[in-house]
Simulated scan of single mutants.
Amino acid sequence: MGTFPDLRKFGGADAFLRACKPRVAIELLSDKWSMLVLGALLFGPRRFGELRRMLDGITPKMLTRTLRSLERDGLLTRTVYPTVPMRVEYALTDLGESAAGMLAVITTWGAEHAEEILAARRAYDARPPAGETPVPA
């Protein structure tokens, strides 16, 4: 097996380096909740409560943190309507829509390979703990 080529000498990026620009996107989109929030917003603007109900398992604290992060990164907008009670909606920006589009590829891959992944996990979990491999008789 050879070494990974250093793409910088060819004018390319090396996502393994901390200062690599594509790494910013990789770190952002590798967060489970960020991808799911983006996917939920593909259906149109949503209020906080709607998102919380859609995203099974997310806590209010994590949803708040994720929404703030996505807004900071320019992937969604937060619109406050001056009503009583106050109404807040979250919607994807053009940048957010382009990022959410990748979710379709990941979803398709996941659907095609979920059983393989689950079978591999079961096989791994059924193995004896490391260092305790039985010796054949």
Rank of each mutant, 00 (worst) to 15 (best):
D73E: 12
F43D: 14
L36H: 12
P45T: 09
R52S: 08
A19K: 11
K32A: 01
K9H: 10
L36F: 07
L55I: 08
A137C: 03
A40N: 12
L41I: 05
E116M: 00
E89I: 11
E71P: 00
E116G: 00
G2S: 06
L92N: 07
G44S: 11
P22H: 00
L92W: 09
E97K: 15
P134Y: 05
R78Y: 02
L42F: 10
G131M: 01
M62N: 09
A126E: 13
R87C: 09
T108R: 15
T133W: 08
T64P: 02
L95V: 07
P60R: 09
A114C: 07
R23F: 01
R23K: 11
S69Y: 07
A100F: 06
W33M: 02
R46D: 09
M1T: 13
L42N: 13
K9W: 04
P5A: 03
A111P: 00
E112T: 12
D6K: 06
E115S: 08
G74H: 08
E132G: 06
V135Y: 06
M102K: 14
S30A: 08
L55G: 07
E115Y: 04
C20T: 14
M62C: 00
K32V: 08
L42E: 15
D125G: 02
R72P: 00
K9V: 03
M86N: 06
I58D: 03
K61C: 01
F43P: 04
G74F: 04
A19I: 05
R18M: 05
A99E: 13
D125E: 15
R47K: 13
R122A: 15
Y90N: 03
V88S: 02
V105L: 12
M1F: 11
F48G: 03
L29N: 14
G57M: 02
P45K: 13
D73A: 07
T93W: 03
W109C: 10
S69V: 02
F4Q: 11
R87T: 11
T83C: 01
S30P: 05
A126I: 01
I117P: 13
E115K: 07
A91T: 07
L70N: 08
E89C: 02
T83M: 02
T77L: 03
Y90Q: 08
P128L: 00
H113Q: 14
E115T: 13
A104K: 13
A120I: 01
G110Y: 08
S30K: 09
A100Y: 08
S98W: 09
I26H: 07
R18H: 12
P82R: 02
L17V: 02
V135M: 10
Y81I: 05
A99K: 14
D56V: 01
T79C: 04
P22W: 00
I117F: 14
R46F: 05
E112Y: 10
A99N: 11
K61Q: 06
K61Y: 01
A104R: 14
G96N: 07
L42R: 15
Y90I: 00
K32S: 05
Y124V: 04
L28M: 08
H113Y: 12
G110Q: 09
V88R: 09
I117L: 13
R121Q: 15
A91K: 10
A114N: 06
T108Y: 12
R72F: 10
